[in-house]
Every structure is written in structure tokens, then in C-alpha cells.
Design a protein around this nucleic acid. Structure first.
Lengths: 193, 193
DNA sequence: GGAAGCCCTTGATCGAGATCAACTCCTTTT
DNA sequence: AAAAGGAGTTGATCTCGATCAAGGGCTTCC
């Protein structure tokens, strides 16, 4: 059931069988269909989602109705509106499924109890968020310092799986570009390589 | 000596006098003059810096020699090349002082020992990095979804202290703009408000 | 199996930000 | 006090990505 979740957890912080069992009791499985919302802007996020199977995206919507993808999550990734989850404030992001997906949910209460009762859970979350921070800092650096075509090349080499499974117009949104622009960049790059 | 550091620490995770003393033994003070490097690209980051007084910036340099500021740190902020610090890989960022500054350094060894010996230190780092993650995610969202003038207005209201103490061309760099462009945006905004 | 919707591409035009250059106002240096 | 450098502004031009518009190739669903 939680195979990938624990594989992932153990690779960062090794667990005993007893610890694993204890943690399991805090988890909640959820299946979600393509295009279905896990979280909508304005609602309060009640859980963090680990992706066992499938894929999701988190995005914001601007005044003109444009969608801006802030994060993708494939198998093995974690996704949430962390701010809403931690503070109880309304979410500023929407999260929905790009494919039929299987999730492992950690509810707010479970999260808080584990932080107190399972020291390794705190270590896991620390390591996890640190990795996410570093990855996002890299993304930010490439946005403010590289030309668009290099950013796209970076994306392809860093996350080849995303490039394969996610529709191109969503990758454009993730890069802050219009779909037409990404199409032209691809054309240009195909020519000169 | 470490007044602000512990004020900050206690506000996130309250400490006993004994804990505070123990942690103090792991810290190292450092004064740094304006324009002096705390870290240079290519060197390995050996410590995390908490700013007691003054201000610093972290930035990357592109192929054409252009500087791109990824982070500012004023009093009460923490700054480092986290990836280099954690992995021992060469740093990809430069960090230098914008003003004469006083820092509290946490060396790699101290960091690792405290994670083992002082549970509240792990909690502190987790809370700290989580806050930094959320702040950066907001910045990223505004970059990919808002027009520049709104981004600048956001920056002014979110970090008025930065806008006051940091030269304008560095703020332009932080926003991924040329100094001339930011100058024109300011002019335009001054007119219509 | 035909219609609708979605996704990607291509073309033409427009506009925001980059670039190049010059000038002013300060601060720092000598 | 003169010189040199740094910071901000303004103008002119250019370029890259946005926008508007159209068309083609798919799935998907009555």
C-alpha cells in the first residue's frame, strides 16, 4: 500500500519495523481521478500528499484567469499548499490530478502527533523540506539568470520524466511562458542541435 | 553577543538557560566588513551565517559576468549556500557584505553535533527552513504570475526594510531586471499613485 | 463514426524590457 | 580641490516574448 512512501522515507531516515508500523497508523490512502481537485484555492489545506502513483500539479490563478503552475508532483514527490496546511489560512493554490493517481495523505493532526511521538518523522520532514528548498532555489536562480532556451534545456535534463508525461502547455506555464513561445523555442532548439 | 540569534531561536522554539548555554558553545562570532566575501563561488561553504547586525547578499554570476542576486539577509535572517554546506560540493553562489556586519556562524561540525545532541536545534532548523521555503515559493509565484510593477509593489510592502537599505540596482538584480527598467517602473508608479 | 474539444503549431503584429549611450548627482580617494 | 568611481535617470533603438488569429492532428464521447 505505502510501498513507495516507505521506500522514500527509509532512504532518507531508516526505520525499524515497529516505527514503520506506528507511522502507518497515521497515514491515509486516497485515490483521485484525473482532473479532480485535491485542494481548491480558498479552502484550507488539511493534509500533505505523497504521490504513490500518478501525477499532480499545484497552480495559482491570476486576475485574468490565467493559470500558473508552481509545482508538479510525480511518483515519489510530495505536494501541498504548505502555508495553508501549517497556518490554517485559506489556500492560495489549486492542486489537481493530471492522471488518475494514488496518494498517501498525512493529515494535520497526524503530522503534529508524529512530530511529537516519532523523532524520525521530524528528521524526515526536515530533510525533505531542505531538499525541496534547494531545488526551488535552483529553479529561481535559473529564472533570474538564464535565457529561456537554456532554462528549458535545464528542465529537460533535470526532470526528463516531467517533460515526457506532462503536456507541453503546462510546462510552458511552469516556466512562465505562453504555449506558443515554448513551441517556437523547441523548434529553434531542434534546428540547431 | 548572540542576543538577536537567541531572541529569534526562542521565538520559534523556547530554550532553557542550560540549553542556551550548550548551544552557545557551538557558535562562533564573526565580523565582516562591507564588500568582503563570506563565501566565494567554487569554495566549499563551511558554515551557516545568522545576521546579528548589518546586511549581506547571495548572488550568482552568469557567463557574461552579470550578477544575479538570489537572496538578501538583514538582521535576524540566515544566509548560506545550503547545498554546498550540506554536500561539501563547491558553492555556486557568492555571499558578501553590503554593510559592515556582525554574524553568528554555525560551522558544519557544530551543526551536525547539535542535530544529534540538541533536539530543539533540529526543530529550530526545520521551522526555519520551512519558513524560508514558503517565502521563496511566494516569490516564485509572483515572478511567474504577476506583472513587474506589481512585483515591485509586493516587494516594497513585504520587505520595506530591504527597499530602504539596499541600493536600487541590487533590487533590480533581485527582481531579474536591468537597473534602467526598475528606474522607469518607479517613475511610472510615482506618477499614477 | 461524426462532432467536439484539446493540443500543438505557424504567421503577423504589438509591446515590454534590454541594450547602448550620455548626463547628473554623490561619495570616496588622493 | 581635483579626480575617480558609484548610483540613478533619461533617451533612442532593438529584440524577444505576448497577443491575436487560424489551421491541423489527436483523442474522447455521445
Amino acid at each position: 500500500m505505502y510501498d513507495l512512501f516507505f521506500k522514500h522515507f527509509n532512504s532518507k531516515v531508516p526505520l525499524t519495523a515497529a516505527e514503520q508500523e506506528l507511522i502507518t497508523s497515521f497515514l491515509r490512502p486516497k485515490k483521485i481521478r484525473k482532473k479532480q481537485y485535491l485542494l481548491q484555492e480558498g479552502d484550507v489545506s488539511r493534509s500533505i500528499a505523497f504521490v504513490e502513483k500518478g501525477s499532480l500539479r499545484a497552480y495559482s490563478v491570476d486576475d485574468e484567469g490565467g493559470e500558473h503552475i508552481i509545482q508538479f508532483a510525480l511518483e515519489g514527490w510530495t505536494i501541498s499548499d504548505l502555508f495553508s496546511f501549517l497556518t490554517g489560512e485559506p489556500a492560495t493554490y489549486n492542486i489537481d490530478a493530471l492522471e488518475d493517481s494514488e496518494l498517501v495523505l498525512i493529515d494535520k493532526q497526524a503530522h503534529e502527533q508524529m512530530l511529537v511521538q516519532v523523532p524520525k518523522y521530524e528528521t524526515y520532514t526536515r530533510v525533505q523540506i531542505t531538499g525541496a528548498y534547494i531545488a526551488m532555489q535552483r529553479r529561481l536562480t535559473s529564472i533570474i539568470s538564464l535565457p529561456v532556451d537554456e532554462r528549458y534545456a535545464n528542465l529537460l535534463s533535470t526532470y526528463p520524466d516531467i517533460a515526457q508525461r506532462v503536456p507541453q502547455h503546462m510546462i510552458a506555464s511552469y516556466m512562465g511562458l505562453q504555449p506558443e513561445t515554448l513551441s517556437r523555442i523547441r523548434k529553434k532548439m531542434a534546428g540547431k542541435k
